[in-house]
């Protein structure tokens, strides 16, 4: 069959909402796009563990400590599901980690911001996880089967994350003067980076059209961003706090909130590595991996020893 025929069959399947599975023929560009997007997503999950793991040892109550551990542990799980799904496309986890550790692969810029107070655990849960969920729910219907299945599992688990985040902020918002200050300060710092999580504006997002055609992506960056702003602008009222955007106002005609201009300079700078914590985050990942090398080696050496011995026993 010619490549054109294969491509036609492939696109027909996608148009008919038939999932693509690992061994099916797919265009190279589709495979590449998936590997890039899925591994980037996996990297984001495991780098994303760091700013929150920061506060596990400082969590203010035993209940908060337990839920925070469980949450960060979930993120490890999500990274793992996504790496596994990516591996079905023929790229091993070793190689993917290598790309992360050498700076060749990107991860979500949001995790290059610091977690300075306990309220950041709340703001991350509410805003960052909230934005992530908005991005991720449509991916449960992504055209690539293993990706979609991983996302279904992730979305199911993710909903507790956002709720616990909001609960943290709600408690702070009803607390002492210092706690309310903490709460507003965290919202101020996390709001714009969260809004940026949806990526560049549609007219500046070159790969989007193709991804939409392949149904790897189902809504545009700006559509999702608008939805996020609309939802958050209402939720913040329950906290009795404000979002740090003087231009945020309900637009009766559009039935949406208008909001202020995004500082894309900052966005691109953080992506380029100039965020406040880019270096620390990557170093922490590299260190964990390198410090773990002897552990992984030892387990492998032992497994090989045992299987050699069991073969010997069978022969004898």
């Amino acid at each position: 069959m010619s490549v054109q025929d294969l491509e036609k069959i492939f696109q027909d399947k996608i148009d008919a909402d038939i999932r693509i599975e690992p061994k099916d023929w797919m265009p190279d560009a589709y495979r590449k796009t998936l590997v890039r997007q899925m591994s980037q997503h996996a990297h984001s999950e495991i780098v994303g563990m760091l700013p929150e793991a920061n506060w596990i040892t400082r969590a203010p109550t035993l209940r908060r400590k337990a839920t925070l551990i469980a949450k960060v542990q979930d993120e490890a799980g999500h990274g793992l599901y996504l790496y596994s799904a990516t591996e079905t496309l023929g790229t091993g986890r070793d190689e993917l980690l290598e790309q992360l550790h050498t700076g060749k692969a990107k991860y979500s810029s949001i995790f290059n911001y610091p977690t300075l107070t306990w309220a950041d655990m709340g703001a991350i849960g509410w805003l960052v996880d909230g934005a992530a969920i908005m991005n991720q729910v449509p991916l449960c219907r992504a055209s690539y089967g293993p990706y979609a299945r991983a996302m279904v599992r992730i979305c199911k688990e993710e909903s507790f994350h956002q709720r616990q985040g909001f609960e943290i902020l709600l408690t702070l918002s009803r607390g002492s003067e210092a706690q309310r200050r903490m709460c507003q300060d965290a919202i101020n710092r996390w709001w714009w980076p969260s809004v940026m999580m949806f990526g560049p504006n549609d007219d500046a997002s070159p790969n989007s059209a193709q991804s939409m055609q392949w149904k790897i992506k189902r809504f545009s960056n700006d559509e999702l961003r608008q939805k996020f702003v609309d939802v958050s602008a209402e939720q913040v009222k329950i906290l009795g706090m404000t979002l740090p955007d003087p231009d945020l106002v309900w637009n009766e005609d559009k039935q949406h909130y208008d909001f202020g201009a995004i500082d894309w300079d900052e966005f691109w700078n953080v992506i380029k590595g100039n965020g406040p914590c880019n270096k620390e985050r990557l170093e922490a990942r590299v260190k964990a991996h390198e410090d773990g090398a002897w552990v992984r080696e030892a387990a492998m050496a032992y497994a090989e020893k045992v299987s050699r011995n069991s073969v010997k026993k069978e022969i004898a």
């Binding site: 495991i46 563990m49 760091l50 929150e52 793991a53 596990i56 040892t57 400590k65 551990i69 960060v72 542990q73 490890a76 799980g77 990274g79 793992l80 790496y83 922490a284 260190k287 964990a288 410090d291 773990g292 090398a293 552990v295 992984r296």
Partner: peptide, 17 residues
């Protein structure tokens, strides 16, 4: 819990957590 996020491999990070 100090290991969470820093384990030798993802699977064991989850285990120790």
């Amino acid at each position: 819990s100090e290991w969470t996020g820093h384990g030798p491999i993802l699977e064991q990070d989850i285990a120790i957590s």
